[in-house]
Design a protein around this nucleic acid. Structure first.
Lengths: 225, 225
DNA sequence: ATCATTTATTTGGTATCCCAAATAAATGAT
DNA sequence: ATCATTTATTTGGGATACCAAATAAATGAT
């Protein structure tokens, strides 16, 4: 365990990914320096190291491009960051706006499976407290075609995929009514009065509030993946 | 937020504290080098920095001594380490022997209150999964005179201090029966047949198993702290 | 007290990651 | 196209934290 675990590398990759996502077509040294609040000389030096590690490519027009490996590494860090944020908010009751700095530190903890266990412990949240999606184990941010139960077509079969809300209260509720990822769900009807939903979950029929329905995300059964 | 948060300093202080606890009377450069598995030259250099920071004193006989500040800092780190270990074992279901390396990383997360929140979340465990006591918020490792309920004198009043076991199952049980730190407890009698305990907790009477009794640690009411 | 061994210290390096200031190259506005 | 501005790059440093090898000092065994 090298005393120094490329803490910086991870920050550079994350920043590059964020710039990429923001739609910046040409990732420049200047943009990266500004984002990381570092001297351009520092950034250039580091970017060259990243190139040697095959995490970025330096194109002929001197723009910086994440390689697939680099992008995947970035996504793994973002996964860690977001899962830790969920932990801080849901379990340690931080406010969603207080957790960023802490997650910045926690995301660098290196372990083969700590974050996977954390994910299980948290109930496989799909989104972090800011509503950003959490990449999966392999670092894929599949833009899942999951929809809230509120958008389901009555009579059609769905599979519960994940949950938009991950508070203790909601997770307790879900456990109580035995709703968890993978279970079959069908909307039978909506009560016009309070907009509550009559649903079949597994083999049981139950009524859930609109709020609950909005936070259960499902996938049409048979959808690819 | 300096990019580098004296990660090493904390390791040195912790190592010195451990040597101190082991009863080593003279903390030498050699002993510290061996414990940290670092070159003596490195250690000497670092120890001098620690002296400049007033965390250790270098005595005339060249032995190294933690200052009060240094010792307290060490205890704060040990507190963090042990609380994270409890988290990893109780919540993420690691085996007690798998958590050390991870806790070595997590203990360096710096935050004014993260670990205090973690402590609350974990139910104020008194010991880490290895059975070592967890220092309090101020870094005091008060050798508390708390005793298990199994050692209580029947009829005498006690206050629940903390718990030896911190598994989910046990904590769930405690919450169910509303036993938490600070509540008054009295042993009314012991059932000879199964060694279960008749106790008063707060205003209620209940029966707890010997196993539960052994894991509830109490302080005689009125004991000085 | 002497000699060998152990411990402490000095010296000259290394790696990571950062900076300021100078220079070179590219870009953009007229 | 020219000049000013913005970028990129080079150069020379700095801090932290580590090492190996040489030297000095202390310790211990006889």
């Amino acid at each position: 365990m090298a005393h120094f675990a490329y803490y910086s590398e991870e920050n550079y990759l994350k920043a590059l990914y964020k710039l990429e996502q923001k739609g910046t077509r040409k990732l420049t040294n200047a943009a990266l320096s500004k984002m990381l609040d570092l001297n351009p000389a520092t950034v250039l030096e580091m970017v060259r190291k990243l190139e040697a590690r095959e995490l970025v490519s330096l194109l002929p027009d001197r723009s910086i491009q994440l390689t697939n490996t680099g992008r995947q590494k970035a996504l793994v860090i973002i996964r860690k960051h977001r899962l830790w944020e969920v932990f801080l908010v849901d379990k340690l009751h931080y406010n969603w706006n207080e957790v960023h700095e802490l997650a910045e530190q926690l995301e660098h903890i290196e372990s083969a499976d700590l974050v996977d266990r954390l994910e299980t412990f948290l109930g496989f949240p799909a989104f972090d407290p800011h509503g950003d999606p959490i990449p999966d184990k392999e670092g894929h941010l599949k833009v899942l075609q999951s929809i809230p139960v509120t958008d389901c077509t009555p009579g059609k079969n769905y599979l519960v995929q994940h949950f938009a809300e991950t508070s203790d209260a909601f997770l307790d509720y879900l456990q109580q009514v035995q709703v968890k990822p993978g279970i079959r769900l069908q909307v039978n009807g909506i009560n016009a009065f309070d907009r509550s939903f009559n649903v079949s979950v597994g083999k049981r029929n139950m009524v859930i509030s609109e709020k609950v329905a909005a936070n259960i995300l499902v996938l049409p059964e048979g959808a690819n993946q």
